[in-house]
Amino acid sequence: MYNPFSLENKTILVTGASSGIGRAIAIECSKMGASVIITGRNEERLKETYSQMRGKQPNYIVADLSKPGEVQNLTKNITTLNGLVNCAGLTKVLPFPFAERKDFEEVMEVNFFAPTELSRLLVKTKKLQKGASIVFISSVSGVYCSAVAGSIYSSSKGAINGLAKAMALDLAPKGIRVNCVNPGMIDTHIFSEGKITQEQLNEDMKRYPLKRFGKPEEVAYAVIYLLSDTAEWITGSNLLIDGGYTLL
C-alpha cells in the first residue's frame, strides 16, 4: 500500500512516553512501523505505553532526564537512531510576581536543559544518523501567545523554539533536520495539580474556534509527518496544531 508517511526501518526515541502526548506519539509511531524506544521516569506507566506499542523491537528504558548522569546512561544504551522526539515536559502555573528562580529552574531543567543535553549527546556520539529527524514538542505558549500565570512555561517553550532553529542550522551539514510542533491545549493531565479548575478549562475550550481541545494523537500525527521521509526538506520549522486558537 502506498504510504509516504511510513516509519518502517526507522528507530525512534521518544522521551516523556509514560503519559499524555509522549505516550500517544510512541504508540502511533510504532503503528507506522517504527522501532520505538521509549523513556520516562515512571516504570509502571512506561510499561503501560509499552504494552500498547507495535512495530519491530519496541523497547523501554527508565530514565529521569533531569539528572545528567541518567541522560548519559540513556545515550550509552542506544545504538543508532533515525528520529528523536523530545516530549518530556511539565508546567508550573504561577503569576509572575510569585515565579521565583527555583520555579524557573525546576521547569527549565525538564523542558529545556534535559532535551538539549540529550540531543547534543546523541548528535555528538553520532547515534543520530545522517537523515535523522529531531522533533521538539514546543507549544503555542511562548511562541505565538501566552497564558495567564504562564511565564515559566512560556519561557521554557520559547527557549526550545530558539534552540531548534539554531540546531537546524548547525546540524544541516549532517543531514539532520530539527523541527518543533506547537500544540494548543491538549487533553492530558498536565493541569492535574488542580490550580486550574475544570470549569476554567471548559471556559478556555470555548475560545478555540474548533470548540474543543486537541487529542494527543493529533499531535502524534504531526510528529509522524516530521519524522517521515515526506518532510525531508523541512527543517527549522514550527508546525502549529491549535484548533485555530492563535487566529483570534
Binding site: V93, L94, P95, P97, F98, V148, A149, K195, Q200
Partner: peptide
C-alpha cells in the same frame, strides 16, 4: 476578580 487574581491568591 479574575483567573489571574485566583491564581495570585493560590500563590500567596
Amino acid at each position: 476578580w479574575s483567573s489571574l487574581t485566583a491564581l495570585s491568591i493560590i500563590a500567596m
